[in-house]
Design a protein around this nucleic acid. Structure first.
Lengths: 250, 250
DNA sequence: GACTGTGAACGGTTTCACAGCG
DNA sequence: CGCTGTGAAACCGTTCACAGTC
């Protein structure tokens, strides 16, 4: 099973510029980054942990603890410099280099994503849009032309795509995912409503509206408010260290 | 906090009705449900915790613990009956009643979601699609005609929408969200890349592609694979769509 | 004095190991 | 015996409270 949990020295003490950030922290860093951009746009150049936490929808204790894992980039008695902190977060998240994203699947969602100009955040360039439907191959969507997914490997190589977004039906998702992995991509964001298996060394994240709606249904049904602020908790680590494992037979 | 006294005695199962399920469990139940549907489609009618866990990307211990929170629906030495378990999960998640979803924002994403036939899972009907752009109000998308968001309250009342999906730019998200809440909706799924504030009693879930890509960037940057099995983590969820649940290759 | 950085307590989640039942 | 159901242990993440610094 878990072959990679060997960390040698006790990981209890979070090495300052050490390495591995906890998943929960990484995901919040992206929120802080967004909040900082917002502050910057408003001409604010210093924030307290309280103000930034409020804007990010977390507690100030959590925020300070998160930031302290990166190092000490604040000034006691004053706060954080927005631009400075933003820079550090960008570095920590790996946003200093450009990422070339290929969108596989040009259905409703794939096309919507391709047309989404800002594409979430700068630093991510959509370099390809692929599909298997002969009727739409060649069509222009936004700045792109739909490529034939049959040439997936060639397209990925030519565009040097290093990230893939899967906007596919569940039925073909695993097969396409395998090809994407074989093409050398190690970062995949899947919108397919299915569990996908990827080999170790590949990071897969899954985004799923059906799950979200069902979770909402659960809360609504019992008249319970889970999260009031933007951040409801929804953990789901799943360190499934078993790399092999018989695929799903049927 | 007010304590919820828990009858810790054994024997009597923890009332399936009165109990609040941990967030992590709820989110996994949706995954199990999907896996069960898949098994059912393949004609399988009994599964062991091991098999279901494998198909769901979790450990069998976790799966059994999760299911045991709902009651004892398995047979020792045998496993679970697929159809039976599916029924129980549906009930637990509140999927026995229909949910009427209004999509606010008919931009690229809103339209893609509206056209998404299967809409993730049955039980969710899209009853309205709204926007403020006069140029597209009245257009037909899928089975719907785009309504004028100026009449949001009236549209929500007429369609008796009890869930809302926000597919809006960040700049107007909070204002629209406030109106949606004022209109009586207590379950909201936001795709807007912004922190939203909602009053207690309203459940808000957020889905954000920018966050997902940045998390991928973090892992890619340090050559580290986080999770193999795709599963949303933390306070930052989803997005989704994909053509049909049928076999349509995209 | 104000606010950051952080050890320590706390609460939730996963894993383990085995008891209980077909 | 096989497999589910479950206390107990191990683990992880958040909150608290205060020490440290400007």
């Amino acid at each position: 099973m878990a072959g990679r949990s060997q960390s040698g020295s006790r990981g209890a003490a979070p090495a300052p510029d050490g390495k591995q950030l906890p998943p929960a922290v990484v995901s919040r860093l992206t929120v802080y980054l967004r909040a900082l951009n917002s502050f910057l746009a408003d001409g604010v150049d210093r924030v307290s942990s309280d103000a930034l936490a409020e804007a990010s929808g977390v507690s100030s204790a959590t925020l300070r603890k998160d930031l302290s894992q990166l190092g000490s980039y604040g000034t006691r008695g004053v706060g954080y410099e927005v631009e400075n902190l933003r820079q550090h977060l960008s570095v920590a998240l790996g946003l200093t280099r450009d990422w070339r994203v290929a969108i596989v699947g040009a259905g409703n969602l794939g096309r919507a994503l391709a047309r989404y100009g800002g594409f979430g955040t700068r630093g991510f360039d959509v370099v390809a849009l692929l599909d298997t439907d002969p009727q739409i191959i060649g069509n222009e969507i936004g700045w792109l032309r739909i490529s034939d997914a049959a040439n997936l490997e060639a397209v990925f190589q030519r565009t040097r795509a290093n990230m893939a977004v899967l906007a596919l039906p569940a039925s073909v998702a695993q097969a396409v995912c395998d090809r994407v992995v074989a093409a050398g991509v190690r970062s995949i964001l899947s919108f397919a409503p299915t569990i996908l298996q990827v080999p170790p060394g590949v990071t897969l994240r899954k985004v799923d509206m059906a799950t979200e709606l069902q979770i909402l249904a659960y809360h609504a049904q019992r008249g319970e408010a889970g999260g009031e602020t933007g951040a409801s908790s929804d953990p789901d680590p799943t360190y499934d260290a078993a790399p092999h494992s018989g695929g799903q037979p049927a």
